[in-house]
Computed example of a mutant assay.
Amino acid sequence: MRLKVNGQPVEAQEGSLLLDVVDVPTLCHHPHTETQGLCRLCLVEVDGRLLPACATPAREGMEVWTDTDALRTLRKTLLEWLALTTDLSLAPELQDLLASYGADPGRWGALTVRKGSAPIRDNPFFLRDYAKCVNCRRCVDACGDGIMGVYALTLENRGLLAHPTTPLDRPLPETPCVFCGNCVQVCPTGALRPLGLEV
């Protein structure tokens, strides 16, 4: 099928998502999990509407814009708020995105929602450091429906206070966790990381 991306004709395979066709930043999307459309970094303009590229099927004749002034401003603001609320010191790809969009988190003042929380060391394999969590939910999905199906991780709270945790906030060894490491592998920020990488 044919569609237009930034005014140029592009071929797309039947059943593909816009993310398979366009080059836009993303955070919550991972090819091995089912998390889609949460971070909003991959928003594109389609026929005058903003849609997440990771959750929007490509269609014949679509006109897609990926890098308008409005989209750049939106991505810049989203990245600034991530930097304000989260310790991104172990997320070099996000730091690069902040720089490429000219993000200036300081223009919003000071806000440290999760930055002060201490890492949780409740098992011999990895840390849970929610100060570095951007709430992409990849780990929850990898532990649940996406890969393992053991549901040792869940979400707690809402909005800026939302973060992954264990059911009833129990130590990991008291959950169905089998310490497979899939949650660590899909984490983009080091919020879940092997012991020995403490920062």
Results as ranks from 00 to 15, higher is better:
132 K>R: 15
48 G>H: 08
133 C>E: 06
39 C>S: 10
97 L>P: 11
115 K>L: 06
25 P>Q: 04
161 L>R: 10
33 T>H: 11
124 P>T: 09
173 P>W: 12
169 D>H: 11
20 D>C: 10
53 A>G: 04
13 Q>F: 03
123 N>R: 02
97 L>D: 11
177 C>Q: 08
100 S>R: 15
43 L>D: 13
115 K>M: 12
90 L>P: 02
144 G>H: 05
1 M>H: 12
197 L>I: 03
104 D>S: 01
18 L>Y: 09
198 E>V: 03
5 V>K: 01
68 T>M: 11
54 C>G: 07
122 D>I: 04
5 V>Y: 01
135 N>H: 14
103 A>R: 00
126 F>L: 13
181 G>W: 00
15 G>H: 02
171 P>H: 07
47 D>Y: 05
78 L>I: 15
14 E>K: 08
4 K>P: 00
39 C>M: 08
127 L>F: 15
153 L>C: 02
151 Y>Q: 04
163 H>E: 08
169 D>V: 03
77 T>K: 03
86 T>W: 01
110 A>E: 14
97 L>T: 14
170 R>E: 15
159 G>T: 10
17 L>G: 10
132 K>S: 08
149 G>W: 11
69 D>P: 13
42 C>V: 13
35 T>M: 10
169 D>F: 09
70 A>I: 06
96 D>Q: 13
154 T>I: 01
49 R>G: 07
146 G>W: 07
151 Y>E: 08
176 P>N: 12
13 Q>G: 13
23 D>W: 06
42 C>I: 14
72 R>S: 02
68 T>E: 14
18 L>D: 05
131 A>F: 03
49 R>D: 12
66 T>A: 10
135 N>I: 15
77 T>G: 01
31 P>W: 13
86 T>Y: 02
64 V>Q: 03
114 R>W: 00
23 D>A: 15
18 L>G: 08
26 T>S: 13
133 C>P: 07
179 F>P: 07
186 V>F: 07
164 P>W: 09
87 D>S: 02
69 D>Q: 15
98 L>D: 03
148 M>I: 01
25 P>G: 09
112 T>H: 14
157 N>W: 12
54 C>A: 06
7 G>M: 06
6 N>S: 08
25 P>W: 09
27 L>C: 11
181 G>Q: 01
43 L>H: 05
107 R>C: 03
61 G>C: 12
127 L>H: 09
139 C>F: 11
101 Y>E: 14
140 V>G: 07
92 P>F: 05
180 C>A: 15
19 L>P: 01
95 Q>A: 13
102 G>I: 02
111 L>W: 04
103 A>S: 04
67 D>C: 00
173 P>I: 14
70 A>W: 06
17 L>M: 14
146 G>R: 02
171 P>K: 02
104 D>W: 00
112 T>M: 09
122 D>K: 02
6 N>K: 05
174 E>R: 09
118 A>R: 13
99 A>W: 00
60 E>H: 11
89 S>P: 03
149 G>S: 10
78 L>M: 13
190 G>K: 08
21 V>N: 02
83 A>N: 00
20 D>P: 04
82 L>Y: 15
197 L>E: 15
